[in-house]
Design a protein around this nucleic acid. Structure first.
Lengths: 276, 276
DNA sequence: CCAAAAGTGTTTGTCCTACACCCATGA
DNA sequence: TCATGGGTGTAGGACAAACACTTTTGG
């Protein structure tokens, strides 16, 4: 039995030069992408897989996720949260029959995938994290021959059950963007409300009303205005905002104190309240 | 390194005869309780702990949770979901200095706690599940000398980090009751809306408006009316309802297909929608 | 001046809350 | 018949969606 920690790393990246031809030329908005590692061992040899590796003796789970994130991309994430533990006995031997995986995978493989060192077919329980990386941070991601960033919604067949895992992480990201305040993790230190809205639009894949978005964000206290403005467009400059660190970013309940988040009680949604 | 699976099992149980004296006599509503196992080994010897045990070679994680649940209580749960994986390196050696744990614990211990068979102080990663058990099911729970049901909100100091785990499970239960439809799992096959409302009130610890609760539940399609009525009170009989199995009970996203839930797309919350 | 995006105001509809009110039953 | 809870109606408030409108810049 092996215990591994893997991470689904999301970032908004400029579209690849090769892939940009498909669209109508000037649609060059960032694309929700994630880095994958090409396997060089027998189970799923040549397939892409999530970055990860075995848990070391004296490190915590979150620590291990941050470490593998740094090892594969050279980056630190602005947001890191546990996703789910996958441990079905047969998840090492799923359908290899599907051959729709990227053909270029075979020639990019190299030595040193950190995942799985023991004998094959051994059972692996994976504790999976998901992470968000900022734009500037993602721009200077380490390039490597067997690490590649792929678009999240047009993935090939991945190794093991990693397609299911990415789908679940995507679902969690989209769900959480709607009710929590994590979209800023995709941006830099300061940002305009238009930029923040575009992150929401890219993640949720639909347009949002600028006026209503502005009001909703301002009412949530998620951001605080600065005195700076973003100029350069041929229009009125937009005010820059900064993420409000005084409020807990997410709802982890009692677990919020054990992570990096400051302790702040979550506002309860009023619903059918009465006396008592 | 050990990998264990533990489960936080919730049920609404009649208050204990001994504990009923504290209240003003006729407040005998059910109490949110969970079964705990008394440890008989050195780390936290005599303390109460969550039921669980090592993951077996050929069983899935959910399978292991259901098995330990059956082994400690003899029951099957109406709801079972993964909670979190706890794996900090130092969580086997937390504060033993606190001695506020129940004094009667020492004399109820017996041989055969299923948890942890290897040498002490070894690192343990626990994948924790949480479960809901129906009222009738909970009433015929197996009694044992080193298994006892304790009230969820007045727990003593538990072994390891199990207090934190129970707090988190409680928070998840309360959060999920508000937006999902899991409260029926505490009840039997059929139930009145008053009974379902009382479950919500007990879990959330506040009263709810009966009229609004009725409308909200009926609008959510969570239950379907039957032709039977609950008679006996000196008032108009109440219609019995049944849980609507045609709709997925919770939001597990892509993971819903891997569990027992039928495949039904989750209705998205409309918010700031526009064209595209 | 004009185009374009920043930012504000306003209407409309929907949902929740509180609470008044009728209905049906057992004693 | 009356007390009790089952079940319905409805006015008021909060909030989101849609969209008209004003403001401020670059060309």
């Amino acid at each position: 039995m092996q215990l591994a920690v893997s991470t689904v790393i999301f970032a908004l990246r400029e579209p690849d030069r090769r892939a940009v031809r498909r669209a109508s030329a000037e649609d060059s908005r960032p694309i929700l992408s994630l880095p994958l590692v090409c396997r060089v061992r027998d189970p799923y040899d040549g397939y892409w897989a999530l970055p990860g590796g075995p848990l070391r003796a004296y490190e915590g789970l979150t620590e291990a996720a941050a470490r593998t994130l740094e090892e594969t991309t050279g980056l630190r994430s602005a947001y890191l949260e546990q996703l789910y533990a996958f441990g079905d006995p047969d998840r090492s031997m799923l359908d290899t029959t599907d051959t729709t995986h990227t053909p270029g995978a075979a020639d990019t493989r190299a030595a040193g995938t950190p995942e799985r060192t023991a004998s094959d077919r051994e059972r692996v329980v994976s504790i999976v994290y998901w992470a968000l990386v900022g734009q500037e941070e993602a721009a200077r991601a380490r390039v490597s021959q067997n690490v590649r960033w792929l678009a999240a919604d047009t993935l090939p067949t991945l190794a093991f059950d990693h397609n299911l895992i990415v789908d679940y992480a995507l679902w969690r990201l989209r769900t959480k963007v709607e009710y929590s305040r994590i979209a800023h993790a995709f941006l830099g230190e300061t940002f305009t409300l238009k930029e923040l809205r575009e992150v929401h639009e890219l993640v949720l894949d639909r347009t949002l009303d600028p006026a209503n978005f502005r009001r909703q964000v301002e009412a949530s206290d998620a951001v605080v205005p600065t005195d700076s403005f973003r100029t350069g467009g041929r229009h009125r400059p937009a005010r820059l905002y900064r993420y409000n660190t005084a409020i807990a970013p997410v709802d982890l309940g009692p677990l919020a104190t054990t992570t990096t988040a400051p302790t702040t009680p979550e506002p309860t949604t009023p619903a059918m309240r009465s006396s008592r």
